[in-house]
Design a protein around this nucleic acid. Structure first.
Lengths: 186, 186
DNA sequence: AATGAAAATTTGACGAC
DNA sequence: GTCGTCAAATTTTCATT
């Protein structure tokens, strides 16, 4: 079944399906904003389904069904809906460290001018995995993942060269303590 | 993703399976550090497998096999190994916004004393989804996801009350631009 | 890594609540 | 609209090479 595979990402283009928290796909605005957060009211069983899949995205529907007290078909339908909604997506997430990316950092950028085009340009850089506009000291927060210091240095050079970037602060990661993705079920 | 997540930061039970990037699980130290990043050399087919699963974590092995030119069994074995290693994990990631968490922020903390116990305590707060020790202006970067401003305010109150926290800067998220999780295959 | 057979799961359709 | 049952198709598992 390529299917469910497909359906799962089928809409890859589908908005929220594209991202979870950091590390999830890359969706930006939600294309289908039909469903607003306040419209969503998950019952306990859907939450349980999400929790199960947050632990193991390939767990069988039958297995989950037994756990939450629904039929396999019901679980399947709910998962499909959650994915269509963009409420959830099932994906592989990789470990940068294990893959040889040993230098991660958060960049705090103070910029001038229109944020959108700048953000787009920065998003286009392959070492960048997270770009968010913020209110506070920095206008843009950018998380980057590099193989080593040399790559980070080169990246900083490119970013600082951008005309709109006034100041760049580098917050090098020393140790990652915690990271979660269990929204909606806490 | 304990895998990469985990390996990155922990060895949760399944290491990387527990986290991707932000938003992935919550692994911290890697128990099975057998595999160090520099030991890892993925061939093109494993990369292709990872890429396929990054798009759709439930895609069938048979389907992937056709695409990468391996047998189903081979794909399955490689995936199992990648997950065991903590290089990758397949999980559901949810969209905070869609689930009613409309206030996200990055907190920059300046602290004193031993970082570890403080980081652990902050990790224990349910609104916290990402804690990283950094070099720079802030000792600790904490990403939080709240339902609303009231919850954020309450959380800030708790954090600022902690004896070790000298200063807290709040960088409220205005717009999420990009978020990726395709490490290892860029 | 690949093959083949057995077991389990997913899929799609249909009916019921 | 959501759920459950059922049979068919597909996939996964496991032993084997």
């Amino acid at each position: 079944m390529t299917e469910h595979g497909e359906s799962a990402r089928g809409e890859a283009e589908s908005p929220s399906a594209e991202r979870g928290r950091r590390g999830a796909g890359r969706d930006r605005g939600h294309a289908d904003a039909r469903l607003r957060s306040h419209d969503l009211q998950l019952d306990e069983r859907s939450k349980a389904i999400i929790e199960a899949l947050q632990h193991d995205g390939r767990r069988s529907y039958a297995d989950i069904a037994k756990e939450v007290g629904l039929s396999e078909a019901a679980v399947r339908q709910r998962v499909a809906k959650l994915v269509e909604n963009g409420t959830m997506q099932i994906v592989a997430v990789t470990n940068p460290m294990q893959l040889g990316f040993q230098r991660q950092a958060m960049l705090g950028l103070q910029v001038t001018g229109d944020l959108a085009p700048l953000a787009d340009e920065i998003c286009g850089m392959e070492q960048v995995d997270y770009v968010v506009a913020a209110a506070g000291t920095y206008d843009l927060l950018v998380e980057v993942v590099c193989e080593d210091d040399e790559e980070l240095l080169a990246l900083l050079g490119r970013i600082r060269t951008l005309p709109q970037v006034l100041r760049t602060e580098v917050m090098t990661y020393l140790k990652l303590w915690d990271q979660r993705y269990n929204w909606g079920t806490r």
